Amino acid sequence: MESLARGGTRWKRFAVVMVPSVAATAAIGVALSQGALAASFSVSGQQFKVTADRLDGKGFVQYGAVDSTKAGNKPVAVVGFNEAKIKNLCQSVVVPVPAFGDVTMKLSAGTDAARPVEAKKLYIDADDIGANATFNNIDIGVSADSTSKGPGPNKGDKYAPGSFAQQADSATFTDVKQRAWATTAGTFKLSGLKMGVKKGKNECY
């Protein structure tokens, strides 16, 4: 099954196959507000942006969850992979510094096509994604706690038992743009790592 989302970084521009996950994320937020679900994954509250030319992943899973920040609880869509290879990765975060202004920290890796970034047990908590996506042997509408093709829900995440999820044997994403709250991985190999700090906003996109 193939789905396409060109340009843009709004959920309404994401592929139709991903829409149910957005609904699941909204449902998680409702459950949280009604006290049916407690948020336990604490993040900094600082969003960051990520781009990549290509991500090839084995063992894909996606489900809705909640991240907890000082500003409040944030519903997110969690994407997980057993293994992933990422080409031309960029990650940036803008940090406001009192009496100085905005400072951007930017990281890049995997710019050499022969040496991509490699990750195992990779999870990305995002609330805004744009990409072109191709899934192999996808199952849409499985229970989050019964997924078997991917790494399963992250131990740090809170999600409603039996809630909507989707999984696939493998997935390929190209022209990736996303706004994320957290990324975790069992191992994360960054080939050709470069990091820079600049005054002002100098984000990946």
Score class of each variant (00 low, 15 high):
residue 28 I to P: 02
residue 28 I to E: 13
residue 28 I to T: 15
residue 29 G to Q: 12
residue 29 G to P: 00
residue 29 G to E: 12
residue 29 G to C: 11
residue 30 V to H: 07
residue 30 V to S: 07
residue 31 A to V: 02
residue 31 A to L: 08
residue 32 L to F: 10
residue 32 L to V: 10
residue 32 L to R: 13
residue 33 S to C: 04
residue 34 Q to N: 11
residue 34 Q to F: 08
residue 34 Q to S: 08
residue 34 Q to W: 03
residue 35 G to T: 04
residue 35 G to K: 05
residue 36 A to W: 01
residue 36 A to F: 04
residue 37 L to S: 04
residue 37 L to F: 01
residue 38 A to S: 13
residue 39 A to W: 05
residue 39 A to L: 04
residue 39 A to K: 00
residue 39 A to Q: 02
residue 40 S to E: 09
residue 40 S to N: 12
residue 41 F to A: 14
residue 41 F to Q: 12
residue 41 F to T: 05
residue 41 F to K: 13
residue 42 S to K: 13
residue 42 S to Y: 10
residue 44 S to R: 01
residue 44 S to F: 02
residue 44 S to T: 13
residue 45 G to V: 07
residue 45 G to F: 10
residue 45 G to T: 05
residue 45 G to P: 04
residue 46 Q to W: 14
residue 46 Q to D: 10
residue 47 Q to T: 11
residue 47 Q to D: 09
residue 48 F to K: 12
residue 48 F to A: 13
residue 49 K to R: 15
residue 49 K to E: 11
residue 49 K to C: 05
residue 49 K to A: 13
residue 50 V to L: 15
residue 51 T to N: 11
residue 52 A to R: 10
residue 52 A to K: 10
residue 52 A to F: 05
residue 52 A to D: 08
residue 52 A to M: 11
residue 53 D to H: 04
residue 53 D to V: 06
residue 54 R to A: 04
residue 54 R to T: 09
residue 54 R to M: 03
residue 55 L to I: 15
residue 55 L to S: 08
residue 55 L to N: 02
residue 55 L to P: 00
residue 56 D to W: 03
residue 57 G to E: 02
residue 57 G to R: 00
residue 58 K to I: 02
residue 58 K to V: 07
residue 58 K to L: 06
residue 59 G to Y: 00
residue 59 G to H: 02
residue 59 G to C: 05
residue 60 F to D: 03
residue 60 F to M: 07
residue 60 F to H: 06
residue 60 F to N: 01
residue 60 F to S: 04
residue 61 V to L: 12
residue 62 Q to D: 14
residue 63 Y to K: 03
residue 63 Y to E: 06
residue 63 Y to V: 05
residue 64 G to M: 03
residue 64 G to C: 08
residue 64 G to H: 03
